[in-house]
Design a binder for these strands. Sequence first.
DNA 1: CATGAATGAGCATTCATTCAT
DNA 2: AATGAATGAATGCTCATTCAT
Lengths: 196, 196, 196, 196
Amino acid sequence: MASTAPKPGTPKRDTKEELVNATIKLASRGGMEAASVRSITREAGVTEGALYRHYRSKEQLWVEVYTRIVGAMAEDKAVLLDADLPARECLGEWIRLTYAYYDGNRDAFNYVLLAPRSLSESLGEVYERQGRLFVELFTRLAARGEVREMDPKLALAVFGGIVLAVPRLVNEGGLEPPASGYTEEITDAVWRAIGN
Amino acid sequence: MASTAPKPGTPKRDTKEELVNATIKLASRGGMEAASVRSITREAGVTEGALYRHYRSKEQLWVEVYTRIVGAMAEDKAVLLDADLPARECLGEWIRLTYAYYDGNRDAFNYVLLAPRSLSESLGEVYERQGRLFVELFTRLAARGEVREMDPKLALAVFGGIVLAVPRLVNEGGLEPPASGYTEEITDAVWRAIGN
Amino acid sequence: MASTAPKPGTPKRDTKEELVNATIKLASRGGMEAASVRSITREAGVTEGALYRHYRSKEQLWVEVYTRIVGAMAEDKAVLLDADLPARECLGEWIRLTYAYYDGNRDAFNYVLLAPRSLSESLGEVYERQGRLFVELFTRLAARGEVREMDPKLALAVFGGIVLAVPRLVNEGGLEPPASGYTEEITDAVWRAIGN
Amino acid sequence: MASTAPKPGTPKRDTKEELVNATIKLASRGGMEAASVRSITREAGVTEGALYRHYRSKEQLWVEVYTRIVGAMAEDKAVLLDADLPARECLGEWIRLTYAYYDGNRDAFNYVLLAPRSLSESLGEVYERQGRLFVELFTRLAARGEVREMDPKLALAVFGGIVLAVPRLVNEGGLEPPASGYTEEITDAVWRAIGN
DNA sequence: CATGAATGAGCATTCATTCAT
DNA sequence: AATGAATGAATGCTCATTCAT
């Protein structure tokens, strides 16, 4: 008779997981407004108290949500960073990678990008960490003379602006959906703007 | 019988005006959270009831706020559209104009960017109208062969992305402040991305 | 057809009154724990929001409650202060007066006396004002040599301690109820402790 | 097989002890509000479940806390009761003793004073037991004609009132700190009030 | 036109207590 | 004995909106 129940000392990781998933799900569907503590916990199938066992505050839950998304993406990007591909190709991969994570978590990203004012410092750090990775990439490529000579942070803004604005317009502004993959055209635009 | 009340023929547009100004003022200072119905009406010097006499809802007040800002900007841009300047110069002016309105109304814009989902159709229309103006510009320039051949809506996304992302990063991402005006460098980037 | 409804501009003082009364009533019955915002407003026949129209916080409501009770008592005591009665008689009246207000508001008093740590500054002020009145009385009597030479604040503590402890013991410690009026015996004890 | 666990014969009274100590420690530092079940158990180094293995409820833990404090004090006072000192001296010692326990456990005492209504009967008994001891003392002294003829319970109220009110005023009412010990002046006042 | 008191559902958070392990 | 995740009702408070005057 093998027991399917978790052992006493074994922390059930399910709840944290459920909470994070519920948060992303709700935010993706109905924007941040839909992601109240009540609705998150209902969606996760637990009570409000359970959230506060695992996270100090709603904000800390968001920190975890964002940290996970960005953290996973950052790992993949770090690999790319060391792959020493030609600049244009590298940028293309970078964008493809960004969209891979962006697509499933659109609203989590938007929340962070559009309302950082209200976010805690620890979330700000995760946010910056994401930016530093691009700056690192750009700086390396610049050292090899493969991209334009410009403030890497400005390059980051240009890159981030283009990459984030396009899906928004696709969604809400009437732009046609990606079809064969907008990525190519977006990479073109980014490359022209910051490439060599 | 000297009357201190406004003359019958004199339309008292004051209340609506005060409400709109109060909204922009509060949102610009303290973000969207500071612009509650209560604080808006207090700032405007009227009561909550008065707001609802003039606007169906808080949302409708925001529609008006946004319509006015974008409307005024659109007028200026329409002039530019007909001025037949060389493409690059025209784009530079266009950006300068955008920032002129954006700077004074950052939070009104951000609100729209952050939560368009919850805004009524009329706001969506205003939002699109702004985009159509750029599309019109781009199409004209394309007809003269002065910009790249690309989907004008994609150009809009690229343009909008760069233009909106840079001030954000300047503000919150640790980028150096505009100095004599980042506008030049932004225009460069935009031009490379979508110019000819 | 005389209208019984309040005029537009006329503030209905009822709600504030109801709130104050409900607070005293609940605190007197079930102690401070029974006086939650929810129960206070239910008892007053209004919703929670209504409380916050009239008071910035629950604490501010308590400030009003206490201010009213102490304020009314202080007025009566001020009269006594100027009546120039012989010390012992004056003290007796003072105690009688204290009980007159104390009896109807026992828990409001107890709350303030036993948990001042959590009270706002403005409540602290009201609290002190009550004490200053006694100190003033004691100082005057001392100047006439009718009471003992001692720190008036210590006298206040002795006076307050005796006066407040007796009803507590009557209520909860098994002391027999006042019968013909404990006041006489209490006045005796107080007089011996601080009189001349 | 060296065992690190306590020997079978050794009773592990640790948990109850830790719980009681943690409660007193927290209440003395941060008032009753700081003594939540969570913080008590964390301070004691156990979990919430452990508390409920040893006490039916939080209230029962407080009963134990209070019983211990008062019990220890009662033992000391019982010795004093049999020492047959002259009345005034005896009262002085009694007060000194009271403060010795009161000072280290101010908040435990205040809790009882503030909210006895909600405490179980067993706590009420402990509370009364404390009073009975004084009544016993007073009755003996009265039999020897060394104190006033008055209801011993009234004497208890007078005694208790003075003794409890003075430290409060010292702490919060702006009275000067005890210096070499207010005890002398307090004993004076008590003696005048109830002594012979 | 304007007032402003009242609504009532909503918010994030805390707490003593329970119970499967 | 002890664990600690989960409960669920309660807390003080905010907000856009309504309506009798």
